[in-house]
Design a protein around this nucleic acid. Structure first.
Ligand SMILES: [Mn+2]
Ligand SMILES: [Mn+2]
Ligand SMILES: [Zn+2]
Ligand SMILES: [Zn+2]
Lengths: 130, 130
DNA sequence: AAAATTAACGCAACAATGTTGCAATTGATT
DNA sequence: AATCAATTGCAACATTGTTGCGTTAATTTT
């Protein structure tokens, strides 16, 4: 394992995650950063953070890709075998850290990772929509 | 509901799905079609087929988007609340129609759709990899 | 069978997202 | 302070998906 450096850009990206309660796309992060760094740099920082298990990547049904830093991330390893919720109305994506699916696999498969995303209406949008 | 027409391009796309045991990306379909139609047309056909519940869209963790026609599609409505498996080695994506996750949601969420993708090694790659 | 209707198409142009190579910069180490 | 490699900026490119519009062709109507 190589030494990952604490650069100003990386710190700025982490602060954005800290402030956000929902998952963020590359574009959303870029907007909040106000030209702290190039957009290529953001891609590279995200790659590094995913690799270091500090954030995780969430790929949505509509094709959008988002990243999130979970609450349990003070632990040594960032486990993300939990569900994510994608609101069809406000398009916010949140970690549902308590929701862990149970399932039975056929033989001869080796499962390394799971991605469980539910979509529908989040509590906020459910209330405001009658 | 509008009338969906049976064009030669749509028939050709459906034949490609019929022949394939795994999910296919837009690019993979285009290659098999040998200039039967424009690539934009393929996008529009896929949209229509998804809309008519004949195929379904699978969005993978690595960002790739694939489409599949399930075996149970002879039924009136194509239900796809089952799991999909994405092989990290051969990158094939298959429907696991028997795998249906059970889970408990917090209150105040309305779930309309689920996307459950497992990744790892498929039986084929598991055997050939010692 | 011919005419009418409009879904579907081709093409060109555009937009969004992500990747790569390379020289310059900068964080960490000695 | 000098060193070294991780990180960055920039430019260029690749891939994927979208849109507008005039034309084509599948289906319905006459
Ligand atoms: Mn997590
Ligand atoms: Mn299905
Ligand atoms: Zn919402
Ligand atoms: Zn495989």
């Amino acid at each position: 394992m190589k030494a990952t450096r604490n650069t100003t850009a990386k710190t700025a990206v982490l602060e954005v995650f800290e402030k956000s309660k929902t998952a963020l796309s590359h574009t959303e992060i870029q907007k909040q950063l106000n030209d702290v760094c190039d957009r290529v740099t953001i891609y590279r920082i995200l790659d590094r953070l995913v690799n270091d298990d500090i954030i995780h990547k969430i790929s949505n049904l509509d094709g959008t890709v988002k990243y999130a830093k979970c609450n349990h991330s003070h632990q040594r390893v960032h486990i993300h075998n939990h569900a994510h919720f994608s609101c069809e109305n406000c398009h916010e994506i949140t970690c549902l850290e308590s929701v862990k699916p149970s399932y039975i696999m056929p033989h001869n498969y080796k499962v390394n990772e799971i991605n469980f995303t539910l979509s529908g209406l989040c509590p906020k949008c459910l209330n405001s929509n009658i």
